[in-house]
Computed example of a mutant assay.
Amino acid sequence: MSGEVMSGLALAEAFYTRAVAPLVAVPHAACLLGEGSEVLGFDTSQSRDHEWGPRVQIFVDTAHVDTVRARMRHLPPVFEGFDTAWFSLATGTVTHHVHVTTLDEWVTEALGLDPRKGMDAAAWLGLPQQRLLHVTAGRVFHDDDGELTRVRRLLTWYPDDVWAWMMLSGWHLIGNTEPMRGRCIETGDLLGERLLTARLCRLIMELTFLQERHYWPYDKWFGAAFARRNAAATLSKMLEQALTGKEPDATIALRDAVTWLGHHHNTLGVGVQVAPRYGPFEVGINNAVRPYETANAGDYVQALRESITNDTLRNLIQVGSIDQLTHSDDAIVTHTDWAARFRHEYRDAITRSAHE
């Protein structure tokens, strides 16, 4: 296969099969997981300007780590036209990129926890979805004892209560944003309206990922990953119209998109059926009603809340997961303890909710 057309995942699998596997010679798992556009299947020729090339992770028992690492000195210098030793951000040197370690160590480093020890709601809510993709995306090439496969299965998707709470949080955010956009249109605040239009489009896309049970990646690949969702065939044109069209076409497109999400909610089997509808915005104070139409987002919030069996999570204020609260850039995903700190905050909030 030509190096010009080979994807990173295909290169990694060939590299493992033909160059790495013959050197391992002990029970192991092999994969390409973790960071990198190729793990998500989004790599292009531009991806090759850094941290791209023949690479693979090898997981072995602790007793075999040093021996297998030493054997990697016998890797070929070139594979499929690519150097097997290249600059490593992790070591700051030019070296091969066969990462030999234990599964326990790698998983804990990738997630900040080991899911085999159990995960409460706070652990799920404080984990950026990009980190979950670090473990669940990519490809496993070999798994002697099946333990790596088991870890990936544990992380396939959120528990039902957490999933419902994240979806109700998504509906809550849509319900809060729609009337603000209507107010901006009413007052002639074009810039504000455009910002809120973009926010609504983002929230609609996020809810689509949740409804389809698929983790969303960080912003660089968010739109590309959305294009792979089943709903994109219908929603993409609506969202493009909302972002580029003039009034009233933009508002109509947003209304159509939210209504479509409402209908799709009714196919999920989570909570009671809710009929999508639009009507004047009810402020909720002094019986005030404002003359811009908004969806019945609150009905979906209530239906989803009633489906949650965990009392403390059901009563938690609907701020959403870490990815619904903030942008998961590198500082949140990989380079700081912020994700762990969020987990502690969620756990504290859930504990306080249980005593209120």
Rank of each mutant, 00 (worst) to 15 (best):
G3K: 09
V5R: 13
G8R: 07
L9Y: 07
E13Y: 06
F15N: 06
T17P: 05
V20P: 00
V24H: 13
P27Y: 15
Q46Y: 02
S47E: 05
S47V: 06
H50M: 13
I58Y: 01
I58Q: 00
T62H: 00
A63H: 09
D66A: 10
R69C: 01
R71V: 02
R71H: 07
R73L: 02
P76M: 13
V78W: 11
W86A: 13
A90C: 00
A90I: 04
T91C: 09
H96Y: 01
V107Y: 05
L113K: 06
P115D: 01
G118N: 10
L125I: 02
Q130T: 13
R131Q: 09
V140W: 02
D144G: 15
D145S: 14
E147F: 00
R153D: 12
Y158I: 09
V162Q: 05
A164I: 07
M167T: 01
P179Q: 12
R183V: 10
L196E: 10
L196G: 12
A198W: 01
E206S: 07
F209C: 00
L210K: 06
E212T: 03
H214S: 12
P217S: 07
Y218S: 12
D219S: 08
F226P: 02
A227T: 00
R228N: 13
A231I: 01
A231Y: 09
K237M: 06
L239Q: 11
G245H: 14
D249H: 09
L254F: 07
L254W: 05
D256I: 00
W260D: 11
H265A: 15
T267W: 02
G271C: 02
G271D: 02
V272Y: 03
P276Y: 11
E282P: 04
N287R: 07
R290S: 07
T294S: 05
N296A: 08
N296C: 10
Y300V: 04
E306V: 03
Q324F: 08
I332M: 15
V333C: 09
T336G: 08
W338T: 15
A339D: 09
A339I: 06
A339Q: 03
A340E: 10
R341N: 12
F342H: 09
Y346I: 12
R347S: 09
R352P: 00
A354I: 06
H355T: 15
